[in-house]
Design a protein around this nucleic acid. Structure first.
Lengths: 203, 203, 203, 203
DNA sequence: CATGAATGAGAGTTCATTCAT
DNA sequence: AATGAATGAACTCTCATTCAT
């Protein structure tokens, strides 16, 4: 029965995704997954070579590359359409597509960036932050004098802001809501972020 | 020698704090702590009933209450001294004291909010966020019409921003730097946050 | 179709024989056998009760009895046609028949004597050696004095040589070669063995 | 208590050596070793990193190098003191030292050559045979014509004989006996082997 | 008080065997 | 008769906790 077999595999993947999302890789026991769908632990090994195989089947590395790609795209877009207008039609339709796609893989993305202990994704968030700072830096004038940050402090601040722009969007992905709601909140948060930045770099 | 005994206990607590900070509760092995100060694993049990007892001695629940208290204070202060001026002397001296105190307990705070797997603090960050939103809400006018967020979406957005303000400050605590640097960056981030908020709620 | 059914059984037996020969009993997995002939693992259990049942169907205990019988025959022959002449026509034609027969069951024989872990044949080689020594002893004069072996040592030596004669022939069976080659090498090894023995027992 | 600790480690090593000797690496369960000396399985891991670490502590790779070295020495000696006299004083005293040393490590040697499944020693015997044939070949005239072996058959025969000269000596090591007995039997077996060879290569 | 060897529960994984289809 | 998914026991290894010394 092919359909039956495929169904169990899908069940395992679904339970694994959910459990990895809730507990992370290390804290997830094979028995957690098996119990969730009422099969024996051993039977998981009928479908997946081992725990890592199951994990990477459910949270594939290619997602990281994709996320990096759209992050860079977004930064370039925002800076090439200066002055920033978070409500513009073009920006809106570009990001609508992206946020929808991210929402599809929201649990995988959370796993990659926040539940990554014991996996190859441990440094994924830092790498994304570094890439973000690197990409953004080209567009930044030095911060206004009156904040009196030295270069090291300036870099640290940029990393913190980058980190948390990413985290805000991760947080948005984490929450259950309609695609429309997510898009609207995403737009609003963009306004928050862009105006926060503007206040630091405008004279 | 009571002093000798106390010293060993202090050593254990210091090593435990550092290791819980680096690895979190679950990933920290009793042998990691013992090795760090050159005593036997068993001897830890002379001073602490078990791993959890040691953990809560070093990261006491009362810290959470204290953190909640100063958060609420800060919000009230900011809103009672409207219009917001992040650079005001009064604000500055209030927060200077607070950020210094937070810095003293930075590792405990990180543990409570970010390395809390397996402990009773798993929900600490969410509780803090809820409190922050609850406190702030009283001061907020509905967001400008053109963002078109319904009440649920508005609440979600507030939670995300609250989350993100907390995370930014945690991130600042996490980094090694001088007290002065930390204060300056803290000020700058406040400007970012306050102007971000202003752009959402000012007409 | 009885013939169809029998054919599958024969296929299983053939694959099992080959795999037991290559890996031994313990290391052979039921799936190795099933995969080799493209049937399901479960189907093996249609024809055989379990792994041991399959094993003993393919490597039957009666073979051991047969091997013991021809060993004894050979020894008697050699000693009744004294002085030994390894090249004699009579010896040659007797052993030609035997070596050919052994070659037919070469894999079973190797399994019985060398891949017997986990089976009832663990002691088969020792039993054969004992029988060989027992049979041969009747024909032996005490070894020449100048070797100065006491009776226990003499017995140990006989066991070792018996072991070794058996092993040499097993080794010959193990190697892929033509029946003619095998016969010629068998003859040559006989010369080696008989002259080795003669040098110990001739004055 | 250092002495107590060392004793347990020695007990584990002794039990491991004996069990590896009896069952081989793969078939030996950690619980076999633990049960043999009445400790828990987990406690073995106090002294050894894992099963392989324990194995190679007890059967070190350096033994193989040593065995190869003395094999080559022996062959060269025998052939440089032609015509062979197995009873010569020089040969006797040379080999007396060697066989005594081999006897000390008899179980390790058996493990290396006969109980090596799952270890890095799987090919040890074949390598030793190859080395032996290679070393010996230089001293050999072609076998007498009347045996009518072609070169391939000749090589196969040499390998078989080499294999079983090694096996004879392994067999001798396997048996419990006094050092004197072992030496005497070793001498006698040498006579057997050397005269067997002589009968093949002398005209 | 201090030690660290010892324990035992539980993790991931393998595989002979069963059984619903 | 044939399938192969499913099971469960057994394996290696880890680590919080205990306890004799």
């Amino acid at each position: 029965m092919q359909s039956k077999k495929d169904e169990v595999k899908k069940d395992i993947e679904a339970a694994a995704l959910q459990t990895f999302f809730e507990k992370g890789f290390v804290e997830t026991k094979m028995s957690d997954i098996a119990d969730a769908i009422g099969i024996s632990v051993g039977n998981i090994y009928t479908y997946f070579k081992n725990k890592k195989d199951l994990f990477y089947s459910v949270v594939p590395p290619i997602l990281v590359d994709y996320l990096k790609k759209i992050l860079v795209e977004t930064i370039h877009f925002d800076n090439q359409h200066f002055p920033v207008d978070a409500d513009s039609e073009a920006r809106s339709s570009l990001f609508q597509a992206q946020i929808d796609l991210l929402a599809t893989y929201n649990r995988q993305i959370i796993i990659i960036f926040e539940k990554n202990k014991g996996t190859s994704y441990v440094n994924a968030k830092n790498e994304l932050v570094d890439l973000m700072v690197e990409t953004k830096k080209a567009y930044l004038t030095p911060p206004s004098k009156h904040h009196e940050l030295n270069p090291d402090e300036h870099m640290a601040m940029l990393h913190i802001i980058a980190h948390h722009i990413i985290d805000m969007n991760l947080d948005l992905l984490k929450r259950e809501m309609s695609a429309d709601s997510r898009r609207r909140i995403f737009q609003t948060l963009s306004v928050y972020q862009l105006n926060g930045m503007k206040s630091l770099y405008d004279s």
